[in-house]
């Protein structure tokens, strides 16, 4: 049974597959331009000193976004991963 969580809830070093991206307008476009589309594997690699923004690794590069922006993205965690 796989779990679907919000990207904001992911821990550092956790890995998952993007399930949905609900952002609209400019934010939606920029998120997709940077490759955050459903089916992409992402790993949370760190958080800024004040826990926000979050740094992700996907498609061979590092991307940062704010928690408020991560809220629009849901991620499917692999089955063996316990939240």
């Amino acid at each position: 049974m796989s779990t679907i969580v919000n990207l904001r809830q992911m821990r550092v070093d956790q890995r998952g597959i993007i399930k949905t991206v609900a952002a609209q307008g400019e934010l939606g476009r920029r998120i997709r331009d940077m490759g955050l589309v459903p089916g992409t594997e992402v790993t949370v690699i760190g958080r800024a000193p004040l826990k926000d923004p979050v740094a992700l690794r996907l498609k061979g590069f590092t991307l940062t976004l704010r928690n408020s922006e991560a809220d629009f993205i849901t991620v499917e965690l692999p089955e063996d991963d316990l939240v």
Partner: peptide, 9 residues
């Protein structure tokens, strides 16, 4: 502005 930004290597 959205913060969606690349951290280049």
């Amino acid at each position: 502005t959205p913060f969606v930004m690349e951290l280049p290597p």
